[in-house]
Amino acid sequence: MVGMKEIVRVAAVLLLLIGLILASGCTEGGLSGGGEGNSGGGEEGVLPVGDEGAGSLAPQEARTFIEMDAPIVVDVRTPAEYAGGHLAGAINIDSSSLGNRIGEMDPNATYLLYCKAGVRSGNALGLMQDAGFTRVYDIEGGITAWKAAGLPVVQG
């Protein structure tokens, strides 16, 4: 039986997709410029949100995803990098310890990962997929691209 929380989540995802399609002007490249780097199972240029999927999101897409779907945001950089500035609400799990801590994480939850430039988070995404996580995404270009897009970070 489908609960109210699931209905609300599905409605939020549908509204997000409609808004993103309208915001993109329905152009041929879509939201991510042709889907390059998007390893999600959906069509190119469409935000890969759903019950099963993984992929990379441009910083603006990631911001909308955080606002609409409330994923668990994981900063996979070192504690020192995290302290220097991170996304609000992000938890810090250093990529070097993720393999040891993955058993503490809910494989049914939705995750958004990031690092400095996207390499470590991309590797972490693959590790999580291999461990059976189906709803895991990362930010293209990491926090560097996030800041370049003028999006906020918090210190401490």
Rank of each mutant, 00 (worst) to 15 (best):
116 K>I: 11
91 I>A: 11
33 G>N: 07
10 V>W: 05
70 A>S: 05
142 G>F: 01
72 I>N: 14
3 G>Y: 08
55 G>K: 02
40 G>Q: 02
20 L>A: 15
83 A>M: 13
97 S>R: 06
65 F>K: 01
75 D>Q: 07
122 G>N: 06
121 S>Q: 12
134 T>R: 10
93 I>K: 02
102 I>A: 12
71 P>D: 09
80 A>E: 11
74 V>W: 06
52 E>M: 05
42 G>I: 02
142 G>C: 15
73 V>W: 12
66 I>A: 04
124 A>E: 01
102 I>N: 07
69 D>H: 01
73 V>F: 05
22 L>A: 15
56 S>E: 10
3 G>D: 12
18 I>P: 09
114 Y>C: 12
6 E>V: 11
90 A>Y: 04
132 G>A: 07
52 E>V: 15
27 T>I: 08
125 L>A: 01
25 G>D: 13
152 P>F: 00
38 N>L: 06
21 I>D: 11
28 E>F: 15
64 T>Q: 13
104 E>R: 10
52 E>L: 14
117 A>H: 02
122 G>D: 10
113 L>G: 09
99 G>Y: 05
156 G>Q: 09
21 I>V: 11
82 Y>H: 15
133 F>T: 04
49 V>P: 04
59 P>C: 04
90 A>C: 01
111 Y>A: 08
58 A>C: 00
132 G>H: 14
87 L>E: 13
36 E>N: 13
24 S>R: 00
70 A>N: 13
155 Q>D: 14
145 A>V: 03
111 Y>P: 05
118 G>W: 00
156 G>E: 03
126 G>P: 00
50 G>H: 05
5 K>A: 14
141 G>F: 03
45 G>C: 01
151 L>K: 14
121 S>H: 10
85 G>P: 06
46 V>N: 08
36 E>S: 07
97 S>Y: 15
113 L>K: 14
87 L>K: 10
66 I>Q: 07
57 L>P: 00
115 C>L: 08
79 P>Q: 02
26 C>H: 14
130 D>Q: 11
67 E>G: 06
45 G>L: 01
8 V>L: 06
49 V>S: 08
46 V>K: 00
77 R>K: 09
114 Y>D: 10
45 G>I: 00
122 G>V: 01
96 S>T: 11
30 G>N: 06
69 D>W: 03
20 L>T: 11
114 Y>G: 13
29 G>D: 15
99 G>A: 06
82 Y>W: 14
136 V>K: 12
21 I>R: 11
106 D>P: 04
106 D>H: 15
16 L>M: 13
89 G>K: 01
